[in-house]
Design a binder for these strands. Structure first.
Lengths: 312, 312
DNA sequence: TATATTTATAACTTAAATCTATAATAATGA
DNA sequence: TCATTATTATAGATTTAAGTTATAAATATA
């Protein structure tokens, strides 16, 4: 049994296809066939059921694959330990970011980060919270940025910053004339929310829950982006909540519609997530420091006591 | 980097000597030299300082060796998973047992166990609790039987049985005429205890602590075995406590000196210990079942409420 | 049934691991 | 200090393993 054989097995388990897995491993298909056969012979078990199309992992195979994942992860970590010791920050780093954080955070820290750590090859993907959790678990992401707490098994969270919510109140709304807004003013019935899967919505719902103690399942509308949300709001569909950083990009003429909350302001907790195995920890540390530094300048509310609307 | 290379590195780290490590690995010394060089070249680090005699592991090398231990453990577990699935109970199994459990427990379950699981090659060693903890941690023992709770990091405990203590009161002792004895009768000042490192002593001290709330450091005597303990006791050195199973072997004429405790009787907790990685779990399960079954017949006090003298 | 897709096998090549023999190096003792 | 001893490194040959190309066999698809 070799680490290489285990990596081949993982690739096949993932692609359910020897040919495709071989490509991903940069070897030919016969190499995979023979190596997997050797592994199966040595353990005297069948890992893959080639009878089914697409190929299926056997019951026992699944356990072997799970353990193979552990072994390969632990093995990869050797490289990580060496890098950390040498102070080397580099290599490929796959980062997932949720849609409502992507457009505001990325432009702020990206330039700074790649300048500071030129040897890191960043691969950034916009993903929903659900996708992020799955891909960190299966090792396809090295880390991700999402609203927390999620408390998902095997995934660690480290808070990057707290981003206050700002209310966007359209011209015809009942709260139009208030200068500041209080959490108790909110009503789930006249609020627009982002579509399912966007954690921002979870944040808003939890926020309302906090004060209403229970919620109604029939929301009035769901939208896919902050821009759409504002437009729908202007069309008389209700008020909405925007994460603070988004409000900095708004056209000036919309500013009168923004109502800041009375302190303590509700906020969402934004964290960097990573697998409990702490692979590539030195890059995660670097990213954490980089983002925290940038955010300190952008969000001035940092010293204000903030309630987390996402707490369970 | 291969699993084989990591195993070689572990062997060298352990023996501090390429030649001896090579023997243990069943390869020649040049094989180890070249494989370790390849590993060091690939990681671009030095793991072993050959300048020192005996060889020393470098600071970074220590971290690599630690991680190598993880990887090799996880890799060994693949075999374990397959065995478990196939219901195969076999292979080498190294078991440590503390001195005060060894002579009573081993004759009871050994014959039964090797008959039931003929493919397990048991290697049993008498060791102190301290040695046991060290050797489970470094992977030299698969499991051990000792008095608990120990709550040592990385080591799991599973209770096998509770063994009541029986007081041995010599003829000239102040408690000689009592039919049964109560824990409150005990006095650390006139008690004989086993030498340091035998957990039984810890048990007795904790027992006295429980009722005296503090203890005196000047014990009157320390001895290495149950037999010596009884002889010393007869010589007027004080009373002593015997684990119940030991009293079954005593010569009949000594029976009048045994005083059972009033219920709830103090007892020691005897557990099977194993590494948290749960390697060879199916053998550990088999051994647990085997011992529990045997003990149910031997200790009739099982249904009696028992206080654990070892609780912290 | 022909065609395409995918895995297995065969024969060969390349690369890796291991061996024997021996050199180099460092520690030990007269 | 200079053999003696113990120990690791290196060279060259051998065995074993991994990978390649070419092709057969098996399975789905049209």
């Amino acid at each position: 049994m070799t680490i290489t054989q285990l990596k081949y097995a993982l690739a096949i388990a993932e692609h359910k296809n020897f040919t495709k897995a071989a490509e991903k491993c940069f070897v030919t298909q016969p190499t995979l066939s023979t190596q997997i056969q050797k592994l199966e012979d040595e353990l005297d078990i069948i890992i893959f059921d080639r009878g089914k199309k697409p190929i299926e992992v056997t019951d026992l195979g699944r356990k072997i694959i799970f353990q193979a994942r552990n072994i390969v992860n632990e093995a990869d970590r050797i490289r990580d330990i060496v890098d950390q010791e040498k102070g080397f920050i580099g290599g490929e780093f796959r980062l997932g970011i949720i849609p409502t954080v992507m457009p505001t955070l990325l432009p702020m820290f990206l330039k700074n980060f790649i300048k500071k750590y030129p040897k890191v090859k960043l691969k950034i993907e916009e993903l929903t919270t659900e996708e992020i959790l799955a891909r960190i678990s299966d090792g396809h992401l090295d880390a991700a940025i999402a609203a927390t707490p999620l408390e998902s098994e095997n995934i660690k969270e480290r808070v990057l910053y707290y981003e206050p919510f700002v209310a966007y109140v359209p011209n015809n709304h009942r709260l139009k004339d208030k200068k500041t807004i209080d959490v108790s003013d909110l009503d789930i019935e006249d609020m627009l929310l982002l579509e399912d899967g966007h954690c921002f919505r979870d944040g808003v719902i939890n926020l309302c829950k906090t004060f209403k103690d229970q919620m109604d399942d029939s929301f009035q509308l769901e939208s896919g982006s902050i821009e759409t949300l504002i437009k729908l709001s202007n069309e008389g569909m209700g008020m909405t909540l925007l994460p603070y950083l988004h409000t900095l990009d708004l056209k000036e003429k919309l500013n009168p519609n923004l109502k800041h909350f009375t302190q303590p302001s509700p906020a969402r907790e934004v964290s960097i997530l990573y697998h409990k195995s702490e692979l590539k920890m030195q890059i995660i540390d670097a990213m954490h420091n980089s983002i925290s530094g940038i955010i300190r300048g952008a969000i001035k509310f940092q010293n204000v006591e903030i309630i987390s609307p996402l707490a369970k």
